[in-house]
């Protein structure tokens, strides 16, 4: 039936290994030396990276039989909507909750899975990173709507379905950091990056948010601003929420140019 419907069966792990090796980057604390430890766990169906880590945490003994400390990582919603569990898995940045062991083994063809922390953020310990700077970027672009107050002032402005849908796409950003990790321009926090640009775009599209567009664009015109984008387009490829990041960058650039050319008319 499935073949008749033209459905392509997803590749499956037909011959699973008895055990899986997890090569995990370790770091005792901020600034300490990084090293790697390998943990071996028995293969089970339906494992994701998080449940493998939970298994390892219970009794942290390396493959060589050495008792060690449990690997530390961040996790919360486990539904790929909070963004906290992001790490680099087999060389690709993604959420560890939705990284399924079977898929990873098919992808690598082996029985080893490599876990590393994101490299563009301070590495707190093991797989844990500090993404505070991403929240600071949101401050820099004033990613909010200015309200007169939270008391009852009736309904908000009307909006077309088209605008709503476009804004909805941007509203799904969970500040996970995949875009910054994949961006070849971003290092040492030199560039505000796609996340904040897309959030500025999100607010600029709102009828009320539009009124403070100048402040938001100003936040993107500094040394770490939007001109750092090298158009590699890696961000849009790794974004787990399929946010149109390159479009946000393009449209925001357009707004900045427009403001530069015609802004004086409004003065």
């Amino acid at each position: 039936m499935s073949e008749a419907n033209g459905h392509k069966e997803k590749p499956r792990l037909t011959n699973p290994p008895k055990t899986i090796d997890f090569r995990i980057s370790r770091r005792e604390r901020l600034g300490a030396q990084q090293y790697t430890e390998t943990f071996e766990i028995p293969y089970r169906k339906n494992l994701n990276v998080i449940s493998a880590l939970m298994e390892i945490r219970k009794n942290p003994v390396t493959k060589e039989g050495k008792q060690t400390t449990p690997p530390v990582w961040d996790m919360n919603c486990l539904e790929q909507v909070c963004g906290i569990c992001t790490m680099v898995i087999d060389g690709r940045v993604r959420q560890s909750c939705s990284a399924l062991v079977d898929d990873l083994l098919i992808g690598s063809g082996g029985n080893t899975i490599t876990l590393e922390p994101m490299s563009k953020f301070p590495n707190v310990r093991d797989l844990q990173v500090d993404r505070t700077r991403m929240f600071n970027h949101l401050k820099q672009v004033q990613a909010w709507v200015e309200l007169d107050g939270t008391h009852d002032l009736g309904a908000g402005p009307t909006m077309t379905q088209a605008v709503q849908q476009e804004r909805y796409a941007y509203s799904r950003c969970m500040t996970c950091g995949c875009c910054l990790e994949a961006c070849p321009q971003y290092h040492d926090d030199n560039y505000i990056g796609p996340q904040a640009i897309a959030q500025a775009r999100y607010q600029n599209m709102h009828p009320t948010g539009k009124s403070t567009i100048d402040e938001r664009l100003n936040g993107l015109m500094g040394e770490d601003g939007i001109t750092n984008c090298g158009n590699a387009q890696n961000c849009v490829q790794v974004c787990p929420m399929s946010i149109p990041l390159t479009r946000a960058i393009y449209e925001t650039n357009r707004d900045i140019t427009f403001n530069a050319l015609f802004g004086w008319l409004r003065k």
Binding site: D152, L153, G156, M159, Q164, S171, Y202, T208
Partner: peptide, 22 residues
């Protein structure tokens, strides 16, 4: 109702009718 309207004013992309209302 006023809570929903407040979130609307804060820019939550609530789904819209053809007329552009919530």
């Amino acid at each position: 109702p006023s809570i929903i309207y407040l979130f609307d004013r804060m820019g939550v992309p609530f789904s819209r009718t053809k007329e552009g209302l919530l």
